[in-house]
Design a protein around this nucleic acid. Structure first.
Lengths: 108, 108
DNA sequence: CATGATATGTCTGAAAAGAGACATATTGTA
DNA sequence: TACAATATGTCTCTTTTCAGACATATCATG
């Protein structure tokens, strides 16, 4: 039951807070869309359609939380994303909120 | 900047994970819709329309995460909600996910 | 006795989000 | 030379969600 709920909530989280999850992945290491798709699908065992992924990445760049650079590697042309200072701050805000949600839960 | 982001993320969270936030409030103490509205609006400094609140509460009850009982108190008729065992489990799942998101962030 | 607060509910039109296709280009493999 | 995988993008139709109104009832206050 707990595991069922966890899967449900994770899917909910990825769907509704996809921007944050993308920032999280890119924060650990600069990477590109296709790689992120593969990684998220493996890590969370869910489908991530590229039709939602790429527009979200572009939106995050436009918002200044990510920056991208076209790179040639392994004979492949990739748009590699790096997190910006604002992106880092955004994640800090997210983690502080999670922390406060957890702190207030410890009372029970 | 951090505070601006925090407000933005909190609004995002409340909107998209309203069900969980409602469970959280009711877990600390059995309460009713109108009271929750006031509390959430004060605590998070956001608007919570009752047009979304009451249907969500009813959905949570239907799902078995909450149970309600009509009560008369202070000359008022209220539908007081209590969290169920499944509701507790649901919150446990949520907190475990938050925990894992935080743990993986501590590397940076 | 009207007005505002408490209390809970639904409904509708508009906006947003979703699934899945359409589109294109390169590379590696059978 | 097809076909699968890599890689990134848009577009449309459908579904879902949302804001705000519509609705109703009680109670307290001026």
């Amino acid at each position: 039951m707990l595991e069922t709920y966890k899967k449900e909530i994770v899917q909910h989280l990825i769907r509704n807070l996809l921007d944050i999850q993308l920032l999280r992945v890119i924060q650990t290491q600069p990477t590109w869309g296709y790689q992120i798709k593969k990684q998220v699908e493996t890590d969370f065992n869910i489908k991530l359609r590229h039709g939602i992924l790429y527009p979200t990445l572009n939106a995050l760049e436009k918002k200044g939380l990510l920056k991208s650079k076209k790179q040639q590697k392994d004979g492949r042309s990739r748009k590699v994303y790096t997190i910006t200072q604002d992106g880092q701050t955004y994640l800090t805000a997210y983690y502080q909120i999670l922390q406060s949600q957890l702190s207030s839960s410890e009372k029970s």
